[in-house]
Design a protein around this nucleic acid. Structure first.
Lengths: 178, 178, 178, 178
DNA sequence: TATGAATGAGAGTTCATTCAT
DNA sequence: GATGAATGAACTCTCATTCAT
């Protein structure tokens, strides 16, 4: 989508219908044949981003793998995605304030169902803490955005070892300890 | 500050100089007596927010307390702050893309120095994982924003027990395990 | 052009984008479809004025005419133009302070080439003083603006004879005397 | 006057009451104790400029000198003044469109009386063309602004000889030829 | 007299949206 | 379906002017 190129090039503020049309090499009015208004365009952009993230997040993850292997892949996938798509964060934060329609929530449910299953599997096996899936998600992956922010703002330069330790810490956070 | 009320009322987009002036019950031009331009207004708003957050975050925390007690208070302070100041997140993400000036970074360093000390104390005592302060920060508190997001979007209703477990998980994430 | 009408009606200060749009009976934004910004609008206005002046100045002047006939027509043309376009002077003075781009200077060179040729012809024939074209221009036509100013401000009412004498004086100024 | 410094520093557009007050190291309101409004301030600025110009114009000119000596001094005085006070031209053009009050006209009459006398003396002696003083003024000095404009815009570099010739041409313009 | 904070109209400019072609 | 000129409200910012102190 053309709007995406714009965001990555010049930031969220640069997204105007005019510029999106120019980038997509169509006329201004044409945009309105495909989207009711700018909000809808942004919502679909968000949906697209969610799909892309889900795809990247779940890449090479399957039920045949051990819990820890799954966790490790998910965590690293999320890390790499956010490291490479810095502007997406801003878009998310921006769009998440819009009134969520049911369709949207259903999509999220569907996209992240495998993650939910992964967590419930872990809980059933007595490996993960007995908590709701959303909470385990937050505990397991919530640090990633923060880590990326520190890296991006050059307030910290984390080493490979630091990252490995973070991955392990994420595992420590969700698993049961003696 | 009037701009704050607006953000909490109608979101970041609603912050126009006109509206800020109206909210503050002054004329448009008056704003420009106190701020060079909108960027400065937003930057000072950010600074103010940082201070307020730091204050709330560090409330009732002192070096006489045990590491775990400190951690517990910090975590709960952060949680409550974010639960009560939902829109602040969006402001932060917005403002963090602006070019950070040195003054800004210095402020952050200063405000969060006690947190840094807390982490280095824990590392020295062999209790926390030997990682940079920023990483421990991300591991200990990074889930909080995510937890709040889930709560706010009503995608999950966490119980008191869930929250306690999350606090413990945060502790698990940063401490060394046998 | 609508901006022109405004200048003639209410002076240079009255030229605001809003008013120009109103005069032209279009919306404000429409102006910006045709001009990048106000500077460009003013620059094109200036260019237009230069062309109109050059056209009026050179009307009915050709190389078949004697030097004195040429001079006489040029002088009267300039006089009539300035008498009928009083506000143009102000616009010129205003615009001449803007940084002149190369395109602008080239236009002036081109528009007034015939005048330059006229002066160099006169110099070659030993009739005009051997001076640069610009100087001869100033000597031959520089009084006209001043004459118009006096007339306009009603500080003097010149007769037809006065004007004829001024034309002759202009000729005296540039020609060689025994 | 403080406004003058501003004009010479940053041009006519930079003259705002705020800046004038700052330059003069008084409060904004203080300006309004001495001037009814901005128009009056500008009018007095104009008056001041007229006085300064008249003074410079008439420097070292007296009735004991020959007509040609007088003319020569006046012409050179005017030239030097305009060469050194480029911004004044713009101010004049700007202010001359304001409605001239009687006081203003009287001042001009008074300031330039010696020039008028000079011209009438020349006419009486049969040396100058029998024309109104204003016309002779235009013929004798009207080229100067044009010469300065060419010089300033670097469209021409006049030599000392060119200038001398221009002075002579001015004399030729106003005197009677056999 | 002198101050300077406050005013609010109006400047230039952008942009989501419409509609005749 | 597709166009893109036109719209006009809303934006940021400036400035002559006022008035309580």
């Amino acid at each position: 989508m053309a709007a995406e190129a714009l965001i990555n090039k010049s930031g969220l503020e640069a997204v105007s219908i005019h510029r999106v049309a120019k980038q997509a090499k169509v006329a201004t009015g044409t945009i309105y044949l495909y989207f009711k208004d700018k909000d809808e365009l942004m919502a679909e952009l968000h949906e697209r981003n969610l799909r892309l993230f889900a795809e990247a997040f779940l890449a090479d993850v399957n039920t045949a793998q051990s819990l820890q292997e799954c966790h490790s892949r998910l965590w690293l996938n999320a890390l790499h995605y956010h490291q490479e798509n810095v502007n997406v964060q801003r878009l998310w934060v921006h769009l998440e304030t819009l009134p969520k329609n049911a369709r949207h929530k259903a999509l999220i449910q569907e996209l992240f169902k495998p993650v939910k299953l992964f967590f419930s599997r872990g809980v059933e096996q007595g490996c993960f803490k007995p908590l709701p899936g959303e909470m385990l998600y937050a505990l397991a992956f919530g640090q990633i955005l923060e880590i990326c922010r520190f890296s991006q703002l050059r307030e910290a330069n984390f080493t490979k070892q630091d990252m490995d330790a973070a991955l392990l810490a994420s595992w420590d956070a969700i698993t049961i300890h003696p």
